[in-house]
Every structure is written in structure tokens, then in C-alpha cells.
């Protein structure tokens, strides 16, 4: 049994109460929801918060709903809810693609989108999905709320824009009628973190790529967008030639590191291959959607 360092524990029954506790107890206080990243780190004593504020009772933050031309996802929405949401399945199947390869059912039943994004693990899948889709995060404090684009959310690995007395309450994704999307991941074993993963979406108008997004996991910053590849795709006819060019750009853009999952050159090659595959699959879904 692994034993964490001593810590205090409280649970919050509202967002306001959670924010008040964060403010009162200072920067060594951490929110805990699913706890699937934080608790293992605490047990290994890599993380040593003085106090945990349990937000699992904030069930009013568990939702996936359409709000005008956006999808709003509450921060306490569990992976399993994302995986089974008909709304996401119809508008952005990239969520289902990703959820199918995130950890295992036990983790997916407890882990939340808010926790996943705020952990800031460079290999985390939902960070890449939300960055791909150009989503944004609502961050609340006692004094107000601000909205930060997912692509600006990370200051570095395990480091986000969220201040010590703030919490993410919602993730917002713009709806793009007719978009196709997909997520491709290679891991050493089902349930493992990605060696590399690529998410993308496409909208196509008259055979030409009108809009697109590409997000990478495990090969640089969390939710790393492949900006050059995106720019190169826009306005170009959808097809293998465009995908191949984007794949090369994404591979050139990423910054993989050699580790136990493999050498950097492999990961770079994988990004190219997975970019091609994700684009093909997303494009097929555009067609299937009748756009």
C-alpha cells in the first residue's frame, strides 16, 4: 500500500463554497474530482497538497448540452458521460474516438473533463481534443468569470492559467455544421498513455477544406495545435495530397522526446501517419454527414 503524506480533506457542496475554501486555505489546496491523476501522484509523494477540496458533490457541473451555436460541457462531466453523449456523437465523434482509448472503464466512470484538462499532462487525450476543436474554458473565481481559449490554457506541462483561488467550471466547444472529426492514438497497450495521438476536424465546402483543426498529444505541450498544418489545409481540396502535406507539417511541428515509449524519430513519424489517418477518417465522416 502506498501512503501519501499527511493532508486535510474537506468537501464542497457548491461552486461558491469550493472557491471560498480555495481562497481561505491558499495555494497548497487542490480540488479533487475523479482523482485519477492526483491521488496516484500523492501516493507516490510526487504531489503533496496540504488540503483537498472534494468537488464530487457539485453535480450541477455534470452536463453536456447545446447552447445556441455551442456545446457546453460541465467540468464535472465524467468520461463515461462524454462517451455516451448522443449530442457529442452526432456533432463531434472525435470525443467517442478519444474516450474509447482513455484508460479503462473504472477510470472513465470517475475521471472528469475538468480534472483531465487541469492536470495538464502533455499526453492527456481530452486536452488534445478540446484544442483540436478550438474550445475554450470558463474559469471562475469569487470575483468573477473569465474565458480562456483551450489553445492558450497551458503555460507548460502540468501548468495552466488557473490561479490558486480559481476553478474551471465549463468547457465550451463551437458547433460547426457538417464538420467531420476523428482521433487516432497509438499506445503500448490499451489503457496506456499515448505514444503519440492526433485529433482533427474538418469542414468541407465544394470539395475544399473550409476550416480545420489539428491537436497533438504526447509530443510537446498539452493539446499542442499543429498550426502550420492547419493553415496549409485551409482552402485546399480535401484529399490525400492535402493530408500528406499536413502530415509532414504536423510531424515537423511537434516536439517529441525520447523515452520508454520510444525514440523521438518514431514519435514524429507516428504523428505524420496518425495525422493522415485522422484526416481521412474525419473527411469520411464529413461525407457520411452529408455536408
Amino acid at each position: 500500500m502506498q501512503t501519501p503524506a499527511p493532508f486535510e480533506y474537506e468537501h464542497a457542496s457548491s461552486v461558491d463554497e469550493a472557491l471560498a475554501l480555495l481562497e481561505r486555505h491558499g495555494p497548497e489546496t487542490r480540488l479533487v474530482a475523479g482523482g485519477h491523476s492526483l491521488l496516484p501522484m500523492m501516493k507516490l509523494r510526487l504531489a503533496r497538497p496540504e488540503r483537498l477540496v472534494d468537488v464530487n458533490d457539485l453535480t450541477d457541473l455534470a452536463y453536456v448540452r447545446r447552447e445556441g451555436d455551442q456545446i457546453a460541457i460541465g467540468a464535472l462531466t465524467r468520461h463515461a458521460q462524454l462517451a455516451s453523449s448522443p449530442l457529442l456523437a452526432s456533432l463531434y465523434p472525435i470525443f467517442q474516438d478519444a474516450e474509447r482509448v482513455i484508460a479503462d472503464p473504472v477510470v472513465r466512470n470517475r475521471g472528469t473533463i475538468g480534472g483531465s484538462l487541469c492536470q495538464g499532462d502533455p499526453a492527456e487525450d481530452l486536452s488534445a481534443v478540446v484544442a483540436t476543436l478550438g474550445g475554450s474554458l470558463k474559469i471562475r473565481s469569487r470575483t468573477g468569470e473569465r474565458v480562456v481559449a483551450a489553445r492558450d490554457f497551458y503555460l507548460g506541462p502540468y501548468e495552466t492559467q488557473v490561479g490558486p483561488a480559481e476553478m474551471v467550471t465549463e468547457v465550451v466547444i463551437p458547433i460547426r455544421p457538417g464538420a467531420g472529426s476523428a482521433y487516432e492514438k497509438v499506445e503500448r497497450r490499451p489503457g496506456d498513455w499515448a505514444i503519440a495521438a492526433v485529433g482533427c476536424f474538418l469542414t468541407v465546402s465544394g470539395g475544399v477544406i473550409a476550416d480545420c483543426g489539428i491537436g497533438l498529444a504526447a509530443v510537446g505541450a498539452p493539446g499542442l495545435p499543429a498550426l502550420e498544418a492547419e493553415a496549409a489545409l485551409r482552402g485546399r481540396p480535401a484529399g490525400e495530397e492535402a493530408y500528406a502535406a499536413a502530415a509532414q507539417m504536423a510531424a515537423a511541428h511537434c516536439r517529441p522526446q525520447t523515452d520508454q515509449r520510444g525514440p523521438a524519430e518514431y514519435k514524429r513519424d507516428l504523428v505524420a501517419e496518425l495525422t493522415r489517418r485522422a484526416l481521412r477518417r474525419a473527411a469520411a465522416r464529413v461525407m457520411a454527414g452529408g455536408a
Binding site: R188, D259, R261, G262, Y266, L270
Partner: peptide, 22 residues
């Protein structure tokens, strides 16, 4: 024979698997 090792083997240069060069 991890995906990385297989990828390297296809390119004729599989790695030693006892030591990881970082």
C-alpha cells in the same frame, strides 16, 4: 516488441531493450 521496437526493426535498427537512452 513494443510499437517503437517494431517500427525500428522495420528500419533495420531495433534497440537494446535493457537500457533506455534518454
Amino acid at each position: 516488441l513494443t510499437p517503437a521496437q517494431v517500427w525500428l526493426a522495420m528500419r533495420g535498427r531495433p534497440l537494446r531493450t535493457d537500457i533506455v537512452e534518454m
